[in-house]
Design a protein around this nucleic acid. Structure first.
Lengths: 214, 214
DNA sequence: GCAACAAGTAACCAGAGAGTTACTTAAAGC
DNA sequence: GCTTTAAGTAACTCTCTGGTTACTTGTTGC
């Protein structure tokens, strides 16, 4: 009868659930302690599964790490495509996302520190970036964003502005005197980012080169 | 005769040199692999000293990590005080510093990931930040930087813009298509940062509130 | 129903790696 | 000079931890 994917809630065996549990536990552990600091036994215990299953599904510790990273990255990519490319929107959206999902930022940070040239899921990520750049170019073409600025540099800058506080919470506290999760900080930063976003608009005086388009 | 600090080049014993060697080797190892990933034996071997000395001078692995971090941080603080607070100068200076001294950026990154509330050398760092904020306020008072913007947010933003590419080299490559150390990237980013710096100037139209000062 | 295979378990193992013990030897103070 | 202290060495220990072996049991296709 259960010809396709089963869905009853409590079967004795359930590979999907087991896999999901491992991934969730591994995300927590890796995000918190990184690859070298994470403990496989702890992941297994937190997932309430036998350690052997972890090796069954993911090969080894590194396979699990990659799987976790891959999942997080693709999750976020889906979000990215819902945006229009408007600087103000993009900045506030990603700033909130970074603050609300530190695990994501931290995984990227661990990736950065691990980084040895090869990037996981490079193809998908590159095309995601390409789509984002296209949205920026469209905005430039419509005269909503200054064409003086290189789209790639704009995007890198957006990421910097939004992710940095979550990536370096200690510096954020040192500089602003507030915790990352302090609502006051969130509000102040969000307001500041709006002002910054306005700076990306073409300067009214200098006629934008894009105007020849329409 | 050697009443004060000795300086002859090759004495059989030399605590200063040993300490320095350990710190240098530890910086490399910790910056590369982080606290959990670093191997004490390797540090000892790279420093060409006996592992026991490492424990003699620094207590344990964590003590060594803290010593390394402390040293790097205070080193950089000295640099910071040579700056005037001009956005263009600050941005290009710190951007170059970050690219040229990845170890420093990486140590801050490891610190961030380690981060559990307590910050090393908090006092000194806070006063260093305070001095930096003062420089920004002076610039605002002189009408060189927009007073619309919160100095703390400005500083946090400067750090973001300059450190991010070095902190996330994989994202930098994904977005710009260039390696962090590619001279073309360095040049493009430096130029972009100059444009950004200009945006921090008071808008000519809106008379700045600071004008009442003179 | 019944192979065949995948899901799951418990106990184990080998090696790595932080930290120690017990010792020797150079330098500083008197 | 000689004692005391700090610098330095070699070998060791013992826990922690990634990965495995050898097994049982539920599911599924036929």
């Amino acid at each position: 009868m259960p010809d396709t994917v089963r869905s009853d809630p409590s079967p004795a065996r359930n590979p999907q659930r087991t896999r999901a549990r491992i991934l969730a536990a591994a995300l927590k552990e890796f995000a918190a302690k990184g690859f070298a600091g994470a403990r496989v036994d702890l992941i297994a215990r937190r997932a309430a599964i036998n350690k052997r299953m972890l090796y069954h599904y993911f090969g080894d510790k590194e396979g699990l790490f990659k799987a976790v990273l891959r999942r997080k990255v693709s999750q976020r990519q889906a979000w990215a495509d819902t945006l229009t490319g408007d600087p103000a929107e993009t900045l506030t959206f990603w700033f909130d996302a970074a603050c609300d999902d530190m695990d994501w930022v931290r995984m990227l940070e661990w990736e950065a520190l691990h980084h040895t040239g090869k990037i996981i899921d490079e193809k998908e990520r590159l095309s995601s970036v390409a789509r984002g750049l296209e949205r920026i170019r469209q905005r430039q073409a419509r005269g909503l964003v200054s064409s003086e600025l290189d789209p790639r540099q704009i995007m890198l800058t957006m990421r910097s502005l939004t992710m940095f506080p979550a990536a370096f919470p200690q510096l954020t506290r040192l500089i602003t005197g507030r915790t990352l999760h302090d609502p006051k900080f969130r509000k102040e930063r969000a307001e500041f980012l709006k002002k910054i976003a306005a700076m990306f608009r073409p300067t009214p005086g200098a006629r934008d080169k894009t105007n020849f388009l329409k």
